[in-house]
Design a binder for these strands. Structure first.
Lengths: 331, 331
DNA sequence: CCCACGCTTGCCATCGATGGCAACGGCGCG
DNA sequence: CGCGCCGTTGCCATCGATGGCAAGCGTGGG
């Protein structure tokens, strides 16, 4: 069995030149129908498959998009990644995925490797660190940022409007008569977290409702801390409603409410999660539309590849409030 | 700004031949120290980075491993993927990830693309369909299967021992005095599910405990169905313990137990999940060791790359029973 | 009847890195 | 003093696919 046949083999077997075989391969119209058929038959017979590496070298580029995220193990990002992969395959692009694991040095390294592979474009969820070095390094390779801006880098961005989304959650609870609303979130050191907290505060203020400091717990990086914060919040002058500003917070808040038999307390969570609709009551969430984000990012990148002169834009993906019960409980 | 400098530029600037520059790049000892220093300095000055595409073409292979899974969005596989990425980077390999989305045609297509990219090896979680075609297509490219065997393909396999793992869960519950144990799982059409159900039945039989048909609900492909099955099981002659044979079943069983205020019923779940340790009681699970599986798969592939003559083996990853409370409740 | 134009096809160079082979220079040894 | 070896360096071909350029051939118009 020919371990692997190359275009030269095809050409020789079909009795044509390499150039003609290449033309057939690329659907060049300037080939006689008879010649084309003969070459195509030989290609099938020899099970010829073009060598993408050689093609990329010659073309100077590759039909592959680089994708750098913090970790594919993160539930939210893994959904985004899946959406990107699907959207890219629809536009005939492959995706080379790499995880930074939160390490800026590794991120830099991975991005460098992707450039060395001549990816046609880069989708990036930046870490918190400065990305000025990328500004020049990209050369002509377009970059689209996902979920958050990169300090020091002026590039397209696809993200949700954290501020507005949190505001929507607050308005939703206010409409049911809630006034004592607690906020449980992670540390406001990443921009998205900061925006959410600001959205909460400003919306409350806009309605003239004071927010006592003890009702704001922006110090819960994991479910355990969120559960503890929830227990503390329930212990005295309990709020009538909670806003959980991250999925990993919801994973603590929800069990704590259930354990304390306080499923009468309203809750709107940020980010959907596995059990949200199976619980009683179902958890009302602001849905982080992973699929839409991934799709929009690919679309933007494809557009920029087609026309590099496009102005840099920020695409805001609208979020959806999924009512399942917990957010509609009365005060 | 030199948009991109190539080795020729380095050679010219340093006043040496291309060959010498190449030797410096590859740490060939046959280069005078002075020459080496000069070339290295020029490389830094020009910000030279080798072109991986050209290198792969010349070398005939690529330091990249192909990874094909059903979907990176699946919680279990996304963890496996992350582990593989990390393990591969430790052995200086990149990973090209692709999702089949359960479509055999797409799987075949993706695998073909990976071969065209000349990946040095392939990690594959096969779909249920026949993979005989791969037997010949691999050529000299080694394949390591993950999580389940591929019908028709004789290749290394890294997986957990589903049968033994379920048996362990049963033994654990029996030790606490349970006799009426319900089984909630998904359809036994994939091999892993079948093995789990068999493990359950055989272990019960081995202890001489009959399993009434109504206690086996192997028809729950999603949390909603599992929740309903749980409610039904609780309604009459309720079992004193549950075994949930898949994470997505646990995500239905657990809320149903909580909603019915039956947290006194014992439960051992298959596969860890986000809330498992925050709930009251914590959920005892048989842990699917994603990290260990990914790491073992990479190790096996690297070993086979180093020595292609190795015999085909199956590596069974031991599972761990994580006791958190729900599995230790008395009958 | 010849030229020119158009449709096909082929030769050769190229993309960037690297291996084979050889040349070159210096030095030690006979 | 000369030969040969070793350390160092360079020229050229190669990996597989593809674009530029031009030749070959057939035909229609002047």
């Amino acid at each position: 069995m020919s371990s692997k046949s190359i275009l030269r083999d095809v050409a020789r077997t079909a009795g044509v030149s390499l150039r003609t075989a290449s033309r057939v391969l690329n659907n060049d119209p300037n080939v006689a129908a008879a010649t084309r058929d003969r070459v195509q038959t030989v290609m099938r017979d020899l099970r010829y498959t073009p060598d993408l590496v050689a093609r990329s070298l010659r073309a100077g580029k590759d039909a592959t998009i680089g994708l750098v995220v913090e970790s594919v193990a993160d539930p939210f990002f893994s959904e985004v990644v899946a959406a990107i992969e699907l959207a890219a395959s629809e536009s005939l692009n492959s995706v080379f995925i790499a995880s930074t694991l939160g390490d800026p040095a590794r991120e830099r390294d991975l991005i460098g490797q992707l450039f060395q592979r001549r990816v046609s474009g880069l989708l990036l969820t930046p870490t918190a660190s400065d990305h000025g070095w990328l500004q020049g390094a990209t050369g002509t390779t377009p970059v689209v940022l996902i979920d958050r801006p990169a300090p020091g880098l002026d590039a397209d961005l696809v993200a949700i409007d954290d501020h507005a989304a949190t505001a929507a959650a607050v308005e939703h609870l206010l409409a049911s008569g809630h006034r004592r609303i607690a906020y449980v979130g992670d540390y406001p050191n990443v921009l998205t977290s900061r925006e959410r907290l600001a959205g909460f505060r400003e919306t409350m203020a806009a309605h003239g409702i004071p927010v006592p400091p003890e009702l704001v717990r922006a110090d819960c990086p994991n479910p355990r801390a969120a559960a503890e914060a929830t227990r503390a919040l329930l212990s005295e002058q309990a709020p009538t409603a909670f806003i959980s500003a991250a999925t990993r917070c919801s994973l603590g808040v929800v069990p704590a409410l259930h354990a304390g038999h306080r499923t009468d307390v309203a809750l709107v969570g940020f980010g959907d999660f596995a059990m949200a609709d199976t619980l009683q009551p179902g958890i009302t969430v602001i849905d982080h539309p992973a699929e839409a984000i991934g799709r929009a990012a690919v679309e933007r990148l494809v557009a920029r590849l087609a026309d590099p002169s496009l102005p840099v834009t920020t695409t805001r993906i609208p979020v959806a409030l999924i009512k399942r019960g917990s957010g509609e409980l009365p005060a």
